[in-house]
Nucleic acid binder design. Structure first.
Lengths: 125, 125
DNA sequence: CACCTGCTTCGATGAACGTCAACATAGACA
DNA sequence: TGTCTATGTTGACGTTCATCGAAGCAGGTG
């Protein structure tokens, strides 16, 4: 159980930016299902500690980092582990054990999908 | 108290896309303060009902909508009002009363700032 | 004035969340 | 084998949150 397989919303889409879960927020009203799906991602980033952890991983060299490199966010180590698990469950991170350390890695397609969500569509303004 | 004045993080920045609260997530690890600020926005969108309301407003003609147009999201009307207030406090919406109805409107600069946050910077991958 | 409609605020309740201390597990090394 | 270090898991506690019904406020209409 080293790698996550719970990407809940977007297929890997090998080619490019993957099929996002939902259209841009400004295109049309979200259905209940779309909202449920997208809210899960936003909620995962809705905690300051998780945001710092995610940013630390995303900005780390190679797009991955071991827990020891990023666990200096002012909370106890179990709490860090708990938040990393949450990010993993939300499909934003994947993890892999290499020897002593566990490395976390960002899922670029998810970033792209969320960015597309926030695109200002033709209907706005 | 018709218009929000609590845009917590980004100055209106009359010129263009406003100064976003934080750099792209992938540029460098967020500081505690940046994370606190950005997490407030993500948390506001981290609820399915709020996401539907926000999307309904954002996609409505003219970028604004009265409560009566968007309150069909499966929860009671006071709950709708509560969520709209949350979105307003997060700086994502503004409201204005015109006669009988209250109109909510999206804050485009915030959308742009969040989109920029999710940009994939040079450090990633 | 009275009445109705649209929306917000108030108070309460149950669920979800963040946090920690303690324990468990996995690998490295002697 | 034993021990040490690095992580993940469990259980509990206090806080925050989403939701509702009821009451309150504002504006329009008779």
């Amino acid at each position: 159980m080293s790698n996550t397989n719970v990407l809940p919303l977007l297929e890997p889409a090998p080619g490019e930016t993957a099929a996002p879960c939902c259209p841009p927020l400004t295109e049309r009203p979200f259905t209940a299902e779309e909202a449920e799906t997208a809210a899960r991602m936003f909620k995962a980033l809705g905690d300051p500690v998780r945001l710092r952890l995610f940013s630390a991983v995303a900005s780390h060299e190679g797009g991955e980092a071991c827990v020891c490199d990023i666990s200096d966010v002012g909370v106890s180590q179990p709490t860090v582990s708990h938040h990393l698990k949450k990010l993993k469950e939300a499909g934003l991170l994947t993890s892999e054990r290499r020897g002593t350390w566990v490395y976390y890695r960002v899922e670029p397609s998810v970033l792209a999908a969320m960015g597309k969500l926030l695109t200002i569509g033709p209907a706005a303004v």
